[in-house]
Amino acid sequence: MKRVRCPKCDNYVTFDETKYETGQSLVFECPQCGKQFSIRIGVSKLRALQKEENVDENLKDNNVGALIVIENVFHYKQVIPLKLGDNVIGRYMKGSKVNTPIETNDPSIDTTHCVINVSYDKRNRLKYILRDGPSNTGTFVHNEILGDRERRVIEDGTLFTIGATSIILKGAEEKEQ
């Protein structure tokens, strides 16, 4: 099953893509707002990294890591690339200033929930520092809640939770020196 987002209200419409051929155009009517819109099968404006599930293959172009958002009742699995500097993480909302959005209907994720700062340490290795936004529901690392603006160094494989959503940090491969 595939899903497309209504351009007017951001509601998702789900359909069975196996019934259609690549290049075929489909017209949908959003059940929530009534907006009619069309898509072409096989053509996506969504960032390739965010829709692909092969994490290791996707990280070849991305040298600082990614977030793996675990699928739950609110959203599908997502792989979101990180960049050097502050990665402001929050719920996707049209017009939001979040630079690392999670596409979700999870109401317990704030639009600016937490931040991961990616930088290099003195040994020229990548360092990931997670801090809470502050957020309404908190940011948890290994089931421990971070205080408002508290910082925690995290590493490859760290599991953290924002709202009802669990995320795994996939660090970049260290380069041989």
Rank of each mutant, 00 (worst) to 15 (best):
E155M: 08
G34I: 01
G171S: 08
R131A: 06
L49H: 09
K97W: 00
T112S: 14
R151L: 06
H142E: 15
H142D: 15
S135D: 10
G138T: 02
T100V: 08
D148F: 03
T14W: 10
V141C: 13
D61S: 14
G90N: 04
I145R: 15
H113Q: 06
G171A: 15
K19G: 02
V141N: 08
T165R: 08
L82D: 05
N72P: 02
F15K: 04
R125I: 00
K35A: 03
G133Y: 04
T112I: 05
D16A: 04
V55G: 01
L126Q: 09
N58H: 01
A48F: 03
G85H: 10
R47S: 12
E155K: 14
E57F: 11
N117H: 14
L146K: 06
I167V: 15
P81W: 03
V13S: 10
D86G: 00
N105S: 15
K127P: 03
D86L: 01
D61G: 06
I41L: 11
K60L: 11
F140W: 14
V4T: 15
G163D: 12
S119P: 01
K122T: 05
L67A: 07
S119N: 07
E29G: 01
M1V: 13
E176G: 00
V64I: 09
F28T: 03
L126S: 09
L26T: 03
K60I: 10
R149H: 06
N124W: 08
V79M: 11
D16E: 14
K94W: 00
Y20S: 04
L130T: 03
N62H: 14
I116F: 10
G171Q: 07
T137W: 01
G23C: 03
E29Q: 14
H113N: 08
I68R: 15
D16G: 00
V4L: 04
T22F: 11
E150F: 02
D86W: 00
I168M: 14
L49E: 14
V141A: 11
G65L: 07
L49A: 08
A66W: 03
A164S: 14
P81N: 13
N72I: 06
N63R: 12
D61C: 01
E103F: 14
S108V: 02
R5N: 01
P134Q: 07
S108L: 12
E155I: 06
S166D: 15
T112L: 09
V69W: 12
N63D: 09
C6L: 07
E52I: 00
N63F: 02
V64F: 09
L84W: 01
V98L: 00
R123S: 09
G65D: 10
P107M: 09
D10N: 15
E71K: 15
E144A: 12
F160M: 12
I154L: 07
G42L: 04
N117S: 12
P107I: 02
V43T: 13
M93H: 11
G95C: 02
V43F: 12
E17C: 02
L46C: 05
N54V: 05
Q32F: 03
I109L: 12
Y12S: 08
R131I: 00
K97D: 11
